[in-house]
Design a binder for these strands. Structure first.
Length: 282
DNA sequence: AACTGTCCCTGCAAGC
DNA sequence: TGCTTGCAGGGACAGT
Protein backbone atom coordinates (compact mmCIF):
# COMPACT_ATOMS: atom_id res chain seq x y z
CA UNK A 1 0.00 0.00 0.00
CA UNK A 2 1.37 3.36 -0.83
CA UNK A 3 3.28 4.78 2.11
CA UNK A 4 6.04 7.39 2.06
CA UNK A 5 8.52 5.41 -0.12
CA UNK A 6 5.89 4.48 -2.73
CA UNK A 7 4.49 8.02 -2.80
CA UNK A 8 8.02 9.43 -3.18
CA UNK A 9 8.62 7.07 -6.12
CA UNK A 10 5.40 8.28 -7.73
CA UNK A 11 6.42 11.89 -7.06
CA UNK A 12 9.66 11.34 -8.98
CA UNK A 13 7.60 9.98 -11.85
CA UNK A 14 5.43 13.09 -11.81
CA UNK A 15 8.54 15.27 -11.78
CA UNK A 16 9.76 13.48 -14.90
CA UNK A 17 6.49 13.12 -16.82
CA UNK A 18 4.04 15.77 -15.68
CA UNK A 19 5.85 18.91 -14.48
CA UNK A 20 5.84 21.60 -17.18
CA UNK A 21 2.90 20.03 -19.00
CA UNK A 22 -0.36 21.81 -19.74
CA UNK A 23 -3.62 20.10 -18.77
CA UNK A 24 -5.83 20.50 -21.83
CA UNK A 25 -8.72 18.24 -20.84
CA UNK A 26 -9.92 16.47 -17.69
CA UNK A 27 -12.32 13.55 -17.36
CA UNK A 28 -13.82 12.42 -14.08
CA UNK A 29 -15.45 9.00 -13.99
CA UNK A 30 -16.37 8.14 -10.47
CA UNK A 31 -17.32 11.17 -8.40
CA UNK A 32 -16.24 9.59 -5.13
CA UNK A 33 -12.60 10.23 -6.10
CA UNK A 34 -13.29 14.00 -6.19
CA UNK A 35 -15.64 13.95 -3.16
CA UNK A 36 -13.83 16.75 -1.29
CA UNK A 37 -15.19 19.19 -3.88
CA UNK A 38 -16.94 18.04 -7.06
CA UNK A 39 -16.49 16.83 -10.61
CA UNK A 40 -17.03 20.39 -11.92
CA UNK A 41 -14.55 21.89 -9.44
CA UNK A 42 -11.78 19.51 -10.51
CA UNK A 43 -12.39 20.05 -14.22
CA UNK A 44 -12.57 23.84 -13.79
CA UNK A 45 -9.50 23.89 -11.57
CA UNK A 46 -7.28 21.90 -13.93
CA UNK A 47 -8.37 22.66 -17.49
CA UNK A 48 -6.00 25.06 -19.26
CA UNK A 49 -3.62 25.04 -16.31
CA UNK A 50 0.12 24.30 -16.32
CA UNK A 51 1.61 22.01 -13.67
CA UNK A 52 4.67 23.70 -12.18
CA UNK A 53 5.97 21.35 -9.47
CA UNK A 54 5.58 17.87 -7.98
CA UNK A 55 6.13 17.78 -4.22
CA UNK A 56 5.23 15.44 -1.38
CA UNK A 57 4.41 15.72 2.31
CA UNK A 58 3.90 12.43 4.10
CA UNK A 59 1.67 10.41 1.80
CA UNK A 60 0.22 13.52 0.10
CA UNK A 61 1.24 14.51 -3.45
CA UNK A 62 0.99 18.25 -4.11
CA UNK A 63 1.52 20.11 -7.39
CA UNK A 64 1.73 23.89 -7.74
CA UNK A 65 -0.38 25.13 -10.64
CA UNK A 66 0.19 28.31 -12.66
CA UNK A 67 -3.29 29.43 -11.62
CA UNK A 68 -2.01 29.92 -8.07
CA UNK A 69 -4.03 26.95 -6.85
CA UNK A 70 -2.63 23.54 -5.87
CA UNK A 71 -3.47 20.00 -6.92
CA UNK A 72 -3.51 17.36 -4.17
CA UNK A 73 -3.60 13.64 -4.93
CA UNK A 74 -3.71 10.91 -2.29
CA UNK A 75 -3.43 7.23 -3.24
CA UNK A 76 -4.67 5.87 0.11
CA UNK A 77 -5.03 2.08 -0.13
CA UNK A 78 -5.18 1.10 -3.76
CA UNK A 79 -4.65 4.29 -5.79
CA UNK A 80 -2.23 4.32 -8.70
CA UNK A 81 -1.01 7.10 -10.99
CA UNK A 82 -0.12 5.89 -14.46
CA UNK A 83 1.33 7.81 -17.40
CA UNK A 84 -0.06 6.56 -20.69
CA UNK A 85 -0.04 7.32 -24.39
CA UNK A 86 -3.02 9.34 -25.69
CA UNK A 87 -6.07 7.15 -26.34
CA UNK A 88 -4.50 4.05 -24.77
CA UNK A 89 -6.97 1.50 -23.37
CA UNK A 90 -7.68 2.34 -19.74
CA UNK A 91 -7.80 -0.27 -17.00
CA UNK A 92 -10.89 -0.77 -14.86
CA UNK A 93 -11.35 1.80 -12.08
CA UNK A 94 -9.72 4.68 -13.96
CA UNK A 95 -11.56 7.52 -12.20
CA UNK A 96 -9.67 10.64 -13.34
CA UNK A 97 -7.87 11.26 -16.65
CA UNK A 98 -5.78 14.37 -17.36
CA UNK A 99 -4.78 14.96 -20.97
CA UNK A 100 -1.32 16.57 -20.96
CA UNK A 101 0.19 18.71 -23.69
CA UNK A 102 3.49 20.37 -24.57
CA UNK A 103 3.27 23.29 -27.02
CA UNK A 104 -0.43 22.48 -27.52
CA UNK A 105 0.31 18.94 -28.71
CA UNK A 106 -1.25 16.25 -26.51
CA UNK A 107 1.62 13.97 -25.52
CA UNK A 108 0.26 11.81 -22.73
CA UNK A 109 -2.53 11.02 -20.31
CA UNK A 110 -2.21 10.84 -16.53
CA UNK A 111 -4.59 8.24 -15.08
CA UNK A 112 -5.75 8.03 -11.50
CA UNK A 113 -6.73 4.37 -11.08
CA UNK A 114 -8.19 3.22 -7.77
CA UNK A 115 -10.24 0.01 -7.25
CA UNK A 116 -11.11 0.65 -3.60
CA UNK A 117 -11.90 4.34 -4.17
CA UNK A 118 -10.34 5.54 -0.92
CA UNK A 119 -7.97 7.79 -2.85
CA UNK A 120 -8.77 11.34 -3.86
CA UNK A 121 -7.91 14.16 -6.24
CA UNK A 122 -8.66 17.80 -5.43
CA UNK A 123 -7.67 21.31 -6.53
CA UNK A 124 -7.54 23.74 -3.62
CA UNK A 125 -6.74 27.36 -2.84
CA UNK A 126 -3.61 27.48 -0.62
CA UNK A 127 -5.13 30.37 1.36
CA UNK A 128 -7.96 28.06 2.42
CA UNK A 129 -5.78 25.10 3.41
CA UNK A 130 -6.80 25.25 7.09
CA UNK A 131 -10.51 24.91 6.36
CA UNK A 132 -10.50 22.94 3.10
CA UNK A 133 -7.55 20.63 3.81
CA UNK A 134 -7.29 20.28 7.61
CA UNK A 135 -5.64 16.86 7.32
CA UNK A 136 -2.85 18.31 5.18
CA UNK A 137 -2.54 21.45 7.29
CA UNK A 138 -2.13 19.38 10.48
CA UNK A 139 0.35 16.88 9.06
CA UNK A 140 3.33 16.06 11.28
CA UNK A 141 7.04 16.10 10.51
CA UNK A 142 8.09 14.46 7.25
CA UNK A 143 11.22 12.47 8.19
CA UNK A 144 12.87 12.81 4.77
CA UNK A 145 11.93 16.44 3.99
CA UNK A 146 11.72 18.38 7.24
CA UNK A 147 14.34 18.85 9.91
CA UNK A 148 14.08 15.57 11.82
CA UNK A 149 16.52 14.95 14.66
CA UNK A 150 16.46 12.57 17.65
CA UNK A 151 15.64 15.61 19.80
CA UNK A 152 12.59 16.43 17.67
CA UNK A 153 11.39 12.82 17.95
CA UNK A 154 11.95 12.94 21.72
CA UNK A 155 9.85 16.12 21.95
CA UNK A 156 7.04 14.57 19.86
CA UNK A 157 6.94 11.37 21.97
CA UNK A 158 7.21 13.12 25.33
CA UNK A 159 4.47 12.00 27.77
CA UNK A 160 2.64 10.10 25.01
CA UNK A 161 0.46 7.24 26.15
CA UNK A 162 -0.99 4.47 24.01
CA UNK A 163 1.51 2.31 22.15
CA UNK A 164 4.49 2.88 19.93
CA UNK A 165 2.97 1.36 16.78
CA UNK A 166 -0.17 3.51 16.96
CA UNK A 167 1.95 6.62 17.44
CA UNK A 168 4.12 5.80 14.41
CA UNK A 169 0.94 5.38 12.35
CA UNK A 170 -0.46 8.72 13.56
CA UNK A 171 0.22 11.21 10.74
CA UNK A 172 -0.01 14.20 13.10
CA UNK A 173 3.32 13.29 14.68
CA UNK A 174 5.54 11.74 12.01
CA UNK A 175 4.02 11.81 8.51
CA UNK A 176 4.33 9.07 5.91
CA UNK A 177 4.68 5.85 7.92
CA UNK A 178 1.99 3.20 7.33
CA UNK A 179 1.49 -0.35 8.53
CA UNK A 180 4.31 -2.03 6.60
CA UNK A 181 7.04 0.44 7.42
CA UNK A 182 5.93 0.84 11.03
CA UNK A 183 6.57 -2.89 11.54
CA UNK A 184 9.88 -2.82 9.66
CA UNK A 185 11.07 0.27 11.57
CA UNK A 186 10.19 -1.25 14.97
CA UNK A 187 12.00 -4.45 14.03
CA UNK A 188 15.18 -2.62 13.01
CA UNK A 189 14.99 -0.56 16.22
CA UNK A 190 14.50 -3.82 18.19
CA UNK A 191 11.40 -2.42 19.88
CA UNK A 192 8.11 -4.17 20.62
CA UNK A 193 5.12 -2.43 18.99
CA UNK A 194 3.25 -2.28 22.31
CA UNK A 195 5.90 -0.26 24.14
CA UNK A 196 4.75 2.94 25.86
CA UNK A 197 6.17 5.85 23.84
CA UNK A 198 6.49 8.28 26.75
CA UNK A 199 8.70 5.87 28.71
CA UNK A 200 11.42 5.37 26.07
CA UNK A 201 14.88 6.59 27.06
CA UNK A 202 16.76 9.15 24.92
CA UNK A 203 19.14 6.38 23.76
CA UNK A 204 16.23 4.18 22.66
CA UNK A 205 14.55 7.10 20.90
CA UNK A 206 17.78 7.80 19.02
CA UNK A 207 17.79 4.18 17.86
CA UNK A 208 14.18 4.53 16.72
CA UNK A 209 15.01 7.78 14.93
CA UNK A 210 17.86 6.08 13.08
CA UNK A 211 15.61 3.16 12.12
CA UNK A 212 12.92 5.48 10.71
CA UNK A 213 15.47 7.22 8.46
CA UNK A 214 17.22 4.00 7.42
CA UNK A 215 14.11 1.97 6.56
CA UNK A 216 12.45 4.80 4.64
CA UNK A 217 15.61 5.68 2.69
CA UNK A 218 16.29 2.05 1.77
CA UNK A 219 12.69 1.62 0.66
CA UNK A 220 12.81 4.78 -1.46
CA UNK A 221 16.02 3.52 -3.08
CA UNK A 222 14.29 0.20 -3.85
CA UNK A 223 11.33 2.01 -5.45
CA UNK A 224 8.94 1.07 -2.63
CA UNK A 225 7.18 -2.24 -1.88
CA UNK A 226 4.79 -4.06 -4.21
CA UNK A 227 2.52 -6.61 -2.51
CA UNK A 228 0.27 -9.26 -3.97
CA UNK A 229 -3.06 -7.63 -3.18
CA UNK A 230 -2.49 -3.96 -3.98
CA UNK A 231 -0.22 -4.18 -7.01
CA UNK A 232 1.52 -0.90 -6.30
CA UNK A 233 3.41 0.34 -9.37
CA UNK A 234 5.14 3.58 -10.28
CA UNK A 235 4.10 6.00 -13.04
CA UNK A 236 5.60 3.77 -15.72
CA UNK A 237 3.95 0.62 -14.36
CA UNK A 238 7.12 -0.73 -12.71
CA UNK A 239 6.84 -2.65 -9.41
CA UNK A 240 8.94 -1.83 -6.34
CA UNK A 241 11.61 -4.11 -4.89
CA UNK A 242 11.64 -3.40 -1.17
CA UNK A 243 9.22 -6.27 -0.40
CA UNK A 244 12.24 -8.60 -0.82
CA UNK A 245 13.88 -6.84 2.11
CA UNK A 246 10.90 -7.07 4.49
CA UNK A 247 12.05 -8.78 7.68
CA UNK A 248 8.75 -9.00 9.58
CA UNK A 249 5.81 -7.75 7.49
CA UNK A 250 3.98 -10.71 5.96
CA UNK A 251 6.32 -13.22 7.64
CA UNK A 252 4.12 -14.36 10.55
CA UNK A 253 5.09 -17.82 11.83
CA UNK A 254 8.45 -17.82 10.06
CA UNK A 255 11.84 -17.70 11.80
CA UNK A 256 13.36 -14.27 12.40
CA UNK A 257 15.90 -13.37 9.70
CA UNK A 258 17.70 -11.03 12.06
CA UNK A 259 18.38 -13.01 15.26
CA UNK A 260 17.69 -16.56 13.90
CA UNK A 261 16.25 -17.44 17.32
CA UNK A 262 12.76 -16.00 17.49
CA UNK A 263 9.66 -16.49 15.40
CA UNK A 264 7.65 -13.72 13.83
CA UNK A 265 4.45 -13.21 15.79
CA UNK A 266 1.27 -11.66 14.44
CA UNK A 267 -1.09 -9.64 16.62
CA UNK A 268 -3.61 -6.82 16.33
CA UNK A 269 -2.46 -3.38 17.51
CA UNK A 270 -4.38 -0.17 16.89
CA UNK A 271 -6.69 -2.23 14.66
CA UNK A 272 -3.82 -3.16 12.35
CA UNK A 273 -2.13 -6.48 11.70
CA UNK A 274 1.23 -6.23 13.41
CA UNK A 275 4.27 -8.50 12.96
CA UNK A 276 7.30 -8.56 15.24
CA UNK A 277 10.00 -10.93 16.45
CA UNK A 278 9.34 -12.75 19.72
CA UNK A 279 13.04 -12.74 20.61
CA UNK A 280 14.89 -9.68 19.38
CA UNK A 281 12.30 -6.95 19.88
CA UNK A 282 11.90 -5.76 23.48
C1' DA B 1 -7.69 16.00 25.27
C1' DA B 2 -6.26 11.87 23.75
C1' DC B 3 -6.89 7.54 22.52
C1' DT B 4 -9.68 3.43 20.29
C1' DG B 5 -13.00 1.37 17.21
C1' DT B 6 -15.80 1.54 13.01
C1' DC B 7 -16.57 2.65 8.47
C1' DC B 8 -15.72 3.41 3.65
C1' DC B 9 -14.66 -0.04 -0.85
C1' DT B 10 -13.12 -3.81 -3.98
C1' DG B 11 -10.43 -7.89 -5.09
C1' DC B 12 -8.62 -11.81 -3.67
C1' DA B 13 -8.00 -16.08 -1.07
C1' DA B 14 -9.36 -19.45 2.21
C1' DG B 15 -12.78 -22.58 3.69
C1' DC B 16 -16.85 -25.14 3.47
C1' DT C 1 -16.63 -26.15 -8.45
C1' DG C 2 -19.09 -22.29 -6.47
C1' DC C 3 -20.52 -19.91 -3.00
C1' DT C 4 -19.70 -17.15 1.42
C1' DT C 5 -16.76 -15.00 4.51
C1' DG C 6 -12.90 -12.47 6.01
C1' DC C 7 -9.14 -9.70 5.28
C1' DA C 8 -6.22 -5.90 3.47
C1' DG C 9 -5.68 -0.71 5.12
C1' DG C 10 -5.40 5.47 5.38
C1' DG C 11 -7.78 8.59 7.36
C1' DA C 12 -12.44 10.72 8.95
C1' DC C 13 -15.37 10.42 12.33
C1' DA C 14 -17.86 8.87 16.43
C1' DG C 15 -17.50 7.14 20.82
C1' DT C 16 -15.16 6.59 25.37
Amino acid sequence: MPELPEVETVRRGLQENVVGRLVVKVEVGRERTVRRTSREALIDGLTGVQILTATRRGKYLICDLDSGQKLMMHLRMSGRLIIAKPNAVRPAHTHVVMHLATSNVVVSELWFVDPRTFGEVVVFDPDLIKTQMPDLANLGVDPLIDEFTPEILRELFKNRRGNLKALLLNQHFVAGIGNIYADEILHLAKLRPDRLPGRLTPVTLSRLHGAIIEVLNKAVNAGGSTLKDTQYVDLDGQTGNFQDQHRVYGRAGLPCLTCRKGRILMTLIAGRTTCYCSACQH
